[in-house]
Design a binder for these strands. Structure first.
Length: 225
DNA sequence: CCCTGATTCGC
DNA sequence: GCGAATCAGG
């Protein structure tokens, strides 16, 4: 398997959506977890709430001395760029650090305390505020077993091959499912999505300080059909 | 042991 | 660029 545009896009989307590397690898198929991680890094995506690197204590004095990390008999000057850590991006909370979809059905159900931020995008689409996602859509995207439903109705749906600059590339469903397809509506000029999906793709910024970790949107965004 | 992501390095 | 092997933490 090679990293095509779409597979890379899927990887990126899922990675940013909080899926674990294993899940992504499984979804894509034909690649290992390591491959996904490796690719993610090469893409520049990196460092998410990683369980293993959670430590970021202010006390750096403890052990600056690096461990050779490479136990291979190769003598290598430990000149590591010392990645400037991106300083805790508002990432998933501790409860769902594992990338699992939160069991809470409505991330934003009764909470109206947040200011409703709405702004108008270039195409006239309304940006939603983070967490303003139309509430209840997907509590949990069914992963793992794909029914392999012999669906004949994918004929008139926009498939991967039907994508062009003119049609909305918003994914409907999940890759691997028999009826996975794309929105296919006419795009909002200058964007990869139609006006409606631009509203989902591009969200308004909350004022500083009022931000919350982005709702770990399940891969591919809300399951709308 | 299971899981996670990070890193290295031969290909 | 890719990803197995490995490391390291939970």
């Amino acid at each position: 398997m090679s990293w095509t545009e779409e597979r890379t896009a899927t990887l990126k989307k899922m990675w940013e959506g909080g899926s674990t590397a294993s899940q992504i690898a499984e979804e894509l198929g034909g690649v290992s977890r390591n491959a996904v991680i490796g690719k993610a890094h090469r893409l520049g995506l990196k460092s998410r709430p990683s369980p293993v690197k959670a430590n970021d204590k202010k006390k750096a004095a403890a052990k600056p001395a690096a461990k050779p990390a490479a136990k291979k008999p190769v003598a290598k000057p430990a000149a590591r760029p010392a990645a400037p850590k991106p300083a805790a991006r508002p990432a998933a909370g501790p409860s769902n650090a594992g990338g699992q979809v939160p069991s809470q059905p409505l991330p934003n159900a009764g909470k109206s305390d947040l200011p409703k931020i709405v702004s108008v995008g270039p195409g006239g689409f309304l940006r939603q505020g983070p967490g303003d996602q139309q509430a209840p859509i997907p509590p949990a995207p069914p992963r793992r077993l794909v029914p392999a439903k012999p669906s004949p109705e994918i004929s008139d749906k926009t498939s991967l091959l039907d994508l062009s600059d003119k049609v909305c590339r918003w994914p409907m469903g999940h890759p691997g499912e028999p009826d996975f397809h794309f929105c296919g509506e006419q795009v909002n000029p200058g964007f990869p999505y139609c006006v409606e999906h631009c509203g989902r793709a591009y969200q308004a910024q909350l004022p500083r300080g009022a931000r919350r970790p982005p709702p770990p949107l399940p891969f591919g965004g809300p399951r709308v059909r």
